[in-house]
Design a protein around this nucleic acid. Sequence first.
DNA 1: TCGACTTGACTACCGAGGTAATACTACCGC
DNA 2: GCGGTAGTATTACCTCGGTAGTCAAGTCGA
Lengths: 127, 127
Amino acid sequence: MSSQRTYRLGDLQLKIMRVLWQIAPASVAEVQEKLDGEPLAYTTVATMLRKMEDRHLVRHCEQQRKFIYEAAVSDADVTQSMADDLVDRLFEGNMAAAVSHLLQTHEVSPDELARLEQLIRQRRNRA
Amino acid sequence: MSSQRTYRLGDLQLKIMRVLWQIAPASVAEVQEKLDGEPLAYTTVATMLRKMEDRHLVRHCEQQRKFIYEAAVSDADVTQSMADDLVDRLFEGNMAAAVSHLLQTHEVSPDELARLEQLIRQRRNRA
DNA sequence: TCGACTTGACTACCGAGGTAATACTACCGC
DNA sequence: GCGGTAGTATTACCTCGGTAGTCAAGTCGA
């Protein structure tokens, strides 16, 4: 059951969550190291983690003087919530409109199209 | 041709843009009036419009001492840019993953499914 | 033991979104 | 001409994301 909460994460926050989802409990240094793109100051990552803990996105425990952080919300919940949020904001909740917009404005490989078609067919049969 | 710019609008900004896209040139009072949800102070709307003009999202001209605002960016550009942005952020640019996520986590009516299937088939034939 | 290094705590600062009060100004009707 | 009204300009404040410096405390190696 996905919680009803709405998540709206910034770029850095999302990147951090992704690290935590992938490598699970991690110290600040580990998170910092695993972040791709421009390297950030240690304190930047630490500060962000603290702010994220305030908002219950992550939690930490102490081990040998180190803070070990882990995600407090699931990938699925966050992804869904953020996707929902955008569909609401941009397409007034109309999912089909959103999907068709994506399909119309983007290149999708034949393979992917085939997969999507299959997906939709499954859905239709289930109904 | 859609401009390359990336738009990330807040809630209010999007609402305002929607009003301007719908009713075209409009005074502050008209925008304020057309905004749904909790009524906002006149000055709130005016301030927001000025900030948005700074960022070239809207422009205004003066008519009888009134500011008449209109959108300076198109619905299509903003929608696409925001959708792209999210696909990038959440699905690392993988469009198909995004679409399939949406399909899997939402109710879509049979009619809509049919429309989507048709859309995909068109795309596949075109390729 | 002492200094370098690690790590967390605290603080600061910027920009943007959002909200609005206050102050000024011009016009309109009496 | 005068006061209300409509409208803009100015200013302020709060939150959040993001970035990071400084400081203090603990740790570990020479």
